[in-house]
């Protein structure tokens, strides 16, 4: 069995793992005792979404969503930085 035949199974497996991890990250987002936990969870969810888009591109061969992935990868960084900016402003909430 060559490696190429295994790719569909690999896509199915990775898809399951990504969705499982997005559920776990969402649990942390809801539960997170501190604000920083929620910020890290949001950042993590955005990273997983970039992974899901990459996987979708491999699966279907459509390149349209890669632009979304690039924008998301650049802007989730900005979101986390902005959150850190406001956390720094009121440190008593930590």
């Amino acid at each position: 069995m060559s490696g190429v035949e295994l790719i569909p199974y690999a896509i199915k497996g990775v898809n399951g793992l990504l969705y499982l991890s997005i559920i776990l990250a969402f649990y942390r987002l809801l539960k997170g005792p501190r604000l920083t936990d929620r910020v890290v969870a949001l950042d993590f969810i955005a990273t997983i979404v970039v992974g899901i888009i990459g996987l979708y591109t491999i699966e279907t061969g459509e390149f349209y969503y890669l632009k979304v992935a690039i924008v998301l990868a650049l802007l989730m960084f900005l979101g986390t930085v902005a959150m850190a900016f406001f956390v720094e402003k009121r440190e008593d909430d930590l």
């Binding site: 349209y64 632009k67 650049l74 802007l75 900005l78 902005a82």
Partner: peptide, 18 residues
Amino acid sequence: EPGGGFVGGLVAASAFIL
């Protein structure tokens, strides 16, 4: 393709917000 003036403007604005 996906994209256009609106999304481009938002991305450009995010550069200055950063």
